[in-house]
């Protein structure tokens, strides 16, 4: 979690984050997640990241927070903390090679939210 601990909490990444922009909640933005890591709060909110790296582009220090969030997700997974949607997606990938599950010929995948 090296980069998270280098974060200066300036907040300049906020508006670059698509999850923050959709939900307008500090907790889901990159800085919010960094605060949670620093306080060692284990929360499923770490699944609410698209790993798009827009926060790195906006960050004056070019910190790669997505790598930390990815690592933390693995820890959550090991601890059995996961979301229902994640379980469905994993199962679908295993069964059908597709997170949306079985899609009939000519049909579109249904909407699926992970958080």
């Amino acid at each position: 979690m090296d980069d998270s601990f280098k974060c200066t909490e300036c907040g300049l990444c906020r508006n670059a984050c698509p999850v923050y922009k959709a939900l307008k909640r500090e907790t889901v933005g990159p800085r919010g997640k960094v605060m949670l890591l620093k306080e060692e709060i284990k929360d499923e909110i770490f699944y609410a990241c698209t790993l798009c790296r827009n926060c790195t582009v906006a960050c004056p220090l070019k910190l790669e927070l997505d790598k930390d969030f990815r690592k933390y997700r693995a820890k959550l997974q090991e601890a059995g903390k996961t979301t229902e949607a994640s379980k469905v997606m994993i199962e679908n990938v295993r069964k059908y090679g597709n997170p949306f599950g079985k899609i009939e010929e000519g049909k579109k995948p249904k909407e699926l939210f992970c958080c």
């Binding site: 909490e9 907040g11 500090e26 997640k33 605060m35 949670l36 709060i41 929360d43 909110i45």
Partner: peptide
Amino acid sequence: EADKAAYSSDA
């Protein structure tokens, strides 16, 4: 707890 932590500070 997560929200309270995220909102406990500013820059």
